[in-house]
């Protein structure tokens, strides 16, 4: 029972496809662990109590607020953030839907919304009829009034929307190449 007394212990988990080990106090929130070395600053502290969705990550594929996940809960888990989703077809589809509808303004909350939507699309692939409006019910946006998000979900991400699900949608507005 000796290890149990240690305040800090190394935790090993998967972050955006890579195995990482960190030695931190057991109650450290994943939010701080991801941000403080500047690696995953898309994970943002909006409230630190799980009530805004700005710090969402995907844990084993499902969106959850990183402020409520403590380091001791991480061993063996798979964590993804938007920094690691560059080639993910669901993320590309979500990204395009958000761009098409200008569903963001300041953008601070947007990675959190994107991950909730990716989480919903993945669940849908497993055969669950997920309502993407419910999937983002825990994300707060103060700028847009959710109009663009509503249009993105209804027009581009509904199960019967015309865009293909492989993320390869080509649009009149899509820009070429890697921006900036």
């Amino acid at each position: 029972m000796n290890d149990l007394y240690r305040a800090s212990e190394p935790v090993t988990f998967e972050l955006n496809g890579e195995t990482v080990t960190r030695s931190v106090p057991a109650a450290t929130p994943l939010l701080d662990l991801l941000r403080e070395d500047g690696q995953c600053t898309s994970v943002r502290p909006g409230c630190r109590i799980g009530r805004c969705g700005a710090c969402n990550v995907l844990m084993d594929g499902q969106a959850m607020p990183a402020c409520l996940i403590m380091a001791w809960q991480l061993p063996g888990r798979r964590i993804e953030t938007v920094e690691g989703l560059g080639g993910d077809p669901d993320f590309l589809r979500v990204r395009q839907a958000l761009v098409e509808e200008s569903a963001l303004q300041c953008g601070y909350c947007t990675p959190g919304f994107a991950l909730s939507l990716v989480s919903g699309l993945r669940e849908r692939r497993q055969g669950n009829p997920v309502d993407l409006g419910e999937a983002i019910a825990g994300n707060l946006c103060r700028c847009t009034g959710y109009g663009g998000l509503k249009r993105a979900v209804e027009k581009h991400l509904s199960p019967c929307s015309s865009t293909s699900s492989d993320g390869g949608t080509v649009s009149k507005k899509q820009i070429s190449g890697e921006p900036e």
């Binding site: 799980g50 969106a63 959850m64 607020p65 909730s116």
Partner: peptide
């Protein structure tokens, strides 16, 4: 349950 917390919190 849709009205209990948000989806991320319901997973925890």
């Amino acid at each position: 349950l849709d009205q209990v917390a948000g989806p991320g919190v319901r997973r925890l």
